[in-house]
Design a protein around this nucleic acid. Sequence first.
DNA 1: AAAAGCCCCTGGATGC
DNA 2: TGCATCCAGGGGCTTT
Length: 271
Amino acid sequence: MPELPEVEVTRLSFAERIADARILAVRMGKPLRWPLGAEPTALLGLTVMAVRRRGKYLLVDLSKGWLLLIHLGMSGSLSFAVELPPAGVHDHFELFTTHGTLRLHDPRRFGAVVLTEGESSDMAEKLLGRLGVEPLGDGFGIGEFHAGLKRRNVSVKQVLLAGDVVVGVGNIYASEALFLAGIRPTTKASRISLARAAKLRAAIRDVLARAVTRGGSTLRDFSSADGQTGYFQLDAMVYGRAGEPCRQCFNPIRQLRQGQRSTFYCGVCQT
DNA sequence: AAAAGCCCCTGGATGC
DNA sequence: TGCATCCAGGGGCTTT
């Protein structure tokens, strides 16, 4: 589910409401991808200062220098409300605060909640340290992006997914951005010209920003922390459209596998 | 060092 | 209806 747009939409949907809340209690369900990394009781009494995002991670800044990292994995979503329905079997983390309850719902449990002593802790460094540049920020320069592609000997789509050149682009938006840029997903990253890299950079920024505006993509069950579903899937040019006509040239959209992930593209519009 | 595969887990869709 | 198989928005770890 959650690529950069879904994570950002989630952040926007509760960051202000949870600010200044004091943590009253914590409940943990089944194990997630990683252990919490500290005693849950360390959370009690702390105040939520802010909620930031880095790539597909949410960074919840807490008082006393603590940092709560939340990753939604493939099937995770957050809810935040004064009153939530009774917790179900797939609700694996709950933070009860003076402003409401923050709950992580994650059937597949590829998600994670990690409590660390700040962004420079070993754990935070391990999880965030190798992340590439933020695509919607000022640091996403054409020259650096082109150089990042240049030095990779795999397909451009796999470089986008890897997240060490640019973060936040997952399987949906990689296919979409490559379509918008007119680039075949199988093209070797090292063979992308500066002009095409510039086009791809613009396409990534465009598609991610528009997806945020549309509330993200709800393929199955994504919703933001206030329960809103996303609508970007309705705007998708290629993702999930194998066999359907290209919205630009009407030739059938093709599907292939790259690194155990499905890729969708138009064989005519993308070269 | 970089790339390719494997694996974590649950549930829905599809096929026999 | 029942059961097997495949697939899914991610990404760290191990093996080549």
